[in-house]
């Protein structure tokens, strides 16, 4: 399968992830959507690395995976903290930034 196929796959995954981020009410649900988006990015990177015979793309992917994992951990930690304080994980209720 050509590069285009993999890129299309990644694009579709990204769109699904975006949909999840936008529509989900639960904070953890939003984080899951972000996971999907990041996954799509990784697929993109690896596909380009393979088709351009450049290993740097894969190095990039290694880094993004690691950093994403750290970010998810922290995001969930914050969610737990907010839950403790506000007794809710519904994102609609977290509107302190409202101007």
């Amino acid at each position: 399968m050509g590069l285009g196929a993999y890129l299309t796959l990644a694009a579709a995954l990204f769109a699904i992830g975006l949909f999840g981020v936008i529509t989900r009410r639960n904070t953890i649900g939003i984080l899951l959507g972000i996971e999907l988006m990041l996954n799509a990015v990784n697929i993109n990177l690896v596909a380009f690395a393979r088709f351009n015979a450049d290993v740097v793309g894969m190095i990039f992917t290694v880094f993004t995976i690691c950093i994403t994992v750290a970010e998810v951990a922290l995001g969930l930690a914050i969610t737990i903290l907010i839950f403790r304080i506000r007794r809710t994980v519904v994102a609609d209720h977290l509107d302190l930034l409202k101007g």
Partner: peptide, 26 residues
């Protein structure tokens, strides 16, 4: 998919960190 792209190492990392780690955390 990573395996299909001949990126075995990455597939392994993906499984270890993502599929196992992130799921556990979630």
């Amino acid at each position: 998919v990573f395996l299909a792209l001949d990126a075995e190492f990455l597939a392994f990392i993906q499984l270890l960190l993502y599929a196992v780690g992130v799921t556990t955390i979630a």
